[in-house]
Design a binder for these strands. Sequence first.
DNA 1: ACCGAACCGTAACGTTCGTTACGGCGATAG
DNA 2: CTATCGCCGTAACGAACGTTACGGTTCGGT
Lengths: 214, 214
Amino acid sequence: MTIHIETEALTDRQKAVLDAALAAMMEEGDALTMTSVSRRASCSKETLYKWFGDRDGLLTATVRWQASKVNVPIVDKSTLERKSLTATLEQFAKDWLTVISSDTSIALNRLAVSHAGSGKTNLGSIVLKNGRQAMGRRLEPVLEAGRETGLLTFENTDETFRTFFGLVLRDVQIRLLLGDQLKLSAAEISAHAAEATQQFFTLYKATNNTKPEG
Amino acid sequence: MTIHIETEALTDRQKAVLDAALAAMMEEGDALTMTSVSRRASCSKETLYKWFGDRDGLLTATVRWQASKVNVPIVDKSTLERKSLTATLEQFAKDWLTVISSDTSIALNRLAVSHAGSGKTNLGSIVLKNGRQAMGRRLEPVLEAGRETGLLTFENTDETFRTFFGLVLRDVQIRLLLGDQLKLSAAEISAHAAEATQQFFTLYKATNNTKPEG
DNA sequence: ACCGAACCGTAACGTTCGTTACGGCGATAG
DNA sequence: CTATCGCCGTAACGAACGTTACGGTTCGGT
């Protein structure tokens, strides 16, 4: 019941155990058992219970651990100045699509969706916070910077981000979660990232201004 | 293991039982038990097993039953002639958002996502076929009709539909599946359906032609 | 060398739940 | 009226799995 592990304080051995749990999660989904995790990690169940409290604690720690590993595309001021807004958005879209279509992300989101239904744990909110919301926090300053430099026109930053979300991800995530055999090559991801970015500019480019990228 | 029920041939009593299973699914998610369903339906477990074979058979029949009840927005030729393309798309978006945000749809999709992970049943493909794919089959003729009448310009119908998908649904479905407390009033749905339709036209309107809706 | 802590492997316990079996009851046909 | 059939309610069985307990091993500190 209780969560024994702070996200920051993890032994290397504990990280290895969580990686094993992650692997189990990818292969067995929510049906993973404490026994299978302990076998994969070559550790005893007693250790699992001592470290993580109970099954939910292990799952929560695993989700947190994976979330901490995900490279949220970071866009800071210097990046904004060096790269054009178009290139920044395009790269962001590319990274995002790549993460979303990874086996790890799919397994994690499936688990979180399941638990959001059973209502016992708050894995859903953890994934939400580290997924959708983290993306918003990263991208919204970029959008507002684009507005300040006169490249974009919009009123509500959050709504604008959600439109970008829709243009980039479309039906990809739900299809993958439902088990659709959807293969996204790097080339296809790049191509669509570019197209979605163009569409985004079409919708939000400042009307009486120079076009982005000339 | 075996599926005993054809989707078409369902007694009234059996439909009532499946509705009870649906209710159980909404409250308990994947954790619903045969006992709870039999209690809700006021039937015996023996009957459940005789009719549906086993637990998976019951779940599959329930998903099929709900899928058969969902009103996929139907757009036929006569509708296309009576209503403008804009109004048609807007209504389609509205119906779709309403379905997606209903408790039933959320519960069903959660279950399907869970099972797509465990890989035992094909609930995911059933939901996919009756959700995302059914929508595509309905809307794509509309888009092509719009292209033929010179209102829209696009090359790939499927890609165009997926863009519409993204503009309409954005982050709504994944947030709801992950348990985000997102309340969509009818007014908000209508407003966004209109906005998404406008954005869609901005992206795909024929360049050298009269604007849709004057 | 000795001690204690941490950990591994495994056995054991208790619960939950899918599945099956059985007795009773109302309806319907002969 | 009686026999059969479908269904209800409940009890019982068995397996899976979360959780706990225990003996043996490793390892760092003294």
